[in-house]
Structures are given as C-alpha cells and as structure tokens.
Amino acid sequence: METCTENVLYQQLDSVMAHYNRSPDALIQVLHQGQELFGYLPDEVLRHIARGLRLPISKVYGVVTFYSFFTTVPRGKHTVMVCLGTACYVKGAERILARLKKELNVDLGQTTRDHLFTLSAARCVGACGLAPVAMIDDDVYGKLTPDKAVKTLKKYR
C-alpha cells in the first residue's frame, strides 16, 4: 500500500519537473513541490530530483541546506512558527516562544514526540500590525499572549 502511494507521489513530482521542462533553473520550485508532496525532503527524493533535472546531487544538497524553508527531516503534522521580527520582538515574542517550548517540551526546530507539532521561528511574517504573532500552518494568529498561544494549540490537538 505504502509503496503504491509513494509511486503516485513520484509520478506527481515527475510531472512537476516536466512542467518546468526539466530545466536545472527550476530546482527551487521543484523542491518546494517535493516538500509539499512528501512533507519533507528525504535522500531518495533529492536523488530523484537530481536525476530528473540532470544536476549533481551535491548541487541539490547545497541548495536544500542553504534555504531555511527546506527540511530533510520529517516535520510534525502542524508547523508552529513564532515570528521573531522586530515588531514582535518589541512586543515580547521571546516570551511566547519560551512558553511554547515549555508547553511542547521541544527546542526550536524540533518535533514533538507525538509528531503533531514542529516548533520553528520566522524572521518576519509581515503581520507586524498584529504583533506578536505566530503562524500555525498557513493561519496567522495575532496579538498573542503566552496563554493565548497555548490555548491556540488546543485547536490542533
């Protein structure tokens, strides 16, 4: 069953590469799609992309490790991203991060044992008017307090 669904994912990845005419220039765009499909970028996927775009694997690996958006380890079901931009910092984002670390019992970049949450930090999500903010997946939560942040997590449990 698992290999079957995985085959489908690889086929989808192939069609993404075909869409970009297998051009090496499209590497970052293809990696985005790959991460979207597989949830993260394991070795096999990177090798597959390298072959597909006719790039050395070292080049692919170099790009993946340069950009903070890409991850080669599995993430939790939800990504909690605490904004540490200037406006959020001025309004106490550090405290929200500290509280979430404690609540989830993880450090930045780590995933909870139940694989539900990955805690990460963002440089600025551009919602400075609502500082301090955090994003859970694609949703922005503004004007947070440490308590509110913990309460928000409950929606995703």
Partner: peptide
C-alpha cells in the same frame, strides 16, 4: 518564482542566483 527563506535573497545579485535555482 517562490523564495525559500533566505534574507540575503533580497540583495539583487543573490536574488538573481536564486531565480536561476542556485544558492
């Protein structure tokens, strides 16, 4: 072209490298 979370890509020559699929 969608970036991938690198502040330095706002610098124009870095941005161009990124559009070309590079670091």
């Amino acid at each position: 072209r969608v970036g991938a979370g690198a502040f330095v890509c706002g610098e124009e020559t870095a941005l161009l490298a990124s559009i070309e699929g590079k670091r």
